[in-house]
Nucleic acid binder design. Structure first.
Length: 292
DNA sequence: AGCTCTTCCTGAAAGC
DNA sequence: TGCTTTCAGGAAGAGC
């Protein structure tokens, strides 16, 4: 599932191919994941791609104003969220089309930008500058840039569980289940702890762990779980480094205790019950549950 | 404010 | 063997 490192990997790949290209035409198959399919189909053709950027887990492809005349004067941004199974890649037109490919952007050099998404949990939209500003406002800080002070303020003052806070895109943009679990394991913090009850040292440790893990994962071109492939169709390598995520029943690499799985904030969470001691209240409930 | 549950969707894997 | 059920999860919305 694409999270910050996977999206960053895709963005870096697309950045080598897309800027400077002009969208010649658009072909859409299934459109239920697109906000306004007609707008995408009509506004994108004739416009030149300026850049490729990452906004949390969103991919932003700004398009130059102008294009083929008529109503396409205002700047627009093609925004793509990969959801669970989304893939965005530039392919030669003769390359066989993968099943579940729903959007084709024909480019002026003959290649195609293709969007493939088995489960269609992804999103696609064409946003004017105001819409983009509104989206950015909803998103929290980028975890790679956030200062220690802001991290403590955003997470250390909230009464929600730390796992929920890490996953909340309005708090931090880009963290998903894999990197939430991995950073909590590394910082030795139980996922059910309340943000406001974490010590300053724990918060600082968590920020450092999260940043190191995200940077390393980007170096490894992301984690390939449930068939994530980058813009060039290559798998990432960070899944080899997972210490807790999806390692239920395996020994904790630090202390040997069996990694456990439980649902917190509606998400399956993987943690070491010894390294990451549970807060009061959770301990009793966890005792009578034993899955997998 | 923040929790849980449900919905969207498909394919893999487990269960019978 | 082959069918049915369960699960996975990002995000949004409902209801508590």
């Amino acid at each position: 599932m694409p999270e910050l490192p996977e999206v960053e990997t895709v963005v870096r790949g697309l950045r080598k191919q897309l800027p400077g290209r002009t969208i010649v035409s658009v072909h859409l198959e299934k459109t239920d994941f697109i906000d306004d399919p007609r707008a995408v189909g009509e506004m994108a053709p004739g416009r030149r791609i300026v850049a490729v950027e990452r906004l949390g887990k969103f991919i932003r492809i700004p398009l130059e104003p102008g294009g083929s005349g008529n109503r396409s004067e205002a700047p627009a941004n093609l925004i793509v969220h990969l959801g669970m199974t989304g893939r965005l890649a530039v392919r030669p037109p003769q390359e066989p089309v993968l099943p579940h490919t729903h959007a084709f952007f024909h480019l002026d050099d003959g290649s195609e930008l293709r969007y493939t998404d088995i489960r269609r949990f992804g999103q696609m939209m064409l946003l004017p500058e105001e819409g983009l500003a509104a989206l950015c406002e909803k998103l929290g800080a980028d975890p790679l840039d956030i200062s220690a002070d802001e991290f403590c303020r955003r997470l250390g003052t909230r009464k929600a569980r730390i796992k929920a806070l890490l996953l909340d895109q309005g708090v931090l943009r880009g963290v998903g289940n894999i990197y939430a679990d991995e950073s909590l394991w590394r910082a030795r913090i139980h996922p059910a702890r309340i943000g406001a009850r974490l010590s300053k040292a724990e918060l600082l440790h968590l920020r450092t762990a999260l940043q190191r893990i995200l940077r390393k994962a980007i170096d490894q071109r992301g984690s390939s779980i449930s068939s994530f492939l980058d813009a060039e169709g290559k798998p990432g390598g960070y899944q080899k480094w997972h210490q807790a995520y999806q390692r239920t029943g395996h020994p904790c690499p630090r202390c040997g205790t069996t990694i456990r799985r439980a649902i917190f904030a509606g998400r399956s969470s993987h943690f070491c019950p010894r390294c990451q001691p549970a807060p009061r209240g959770v301990r009793r409930r966890a005792a009578r549950k034993r899955k997998r």
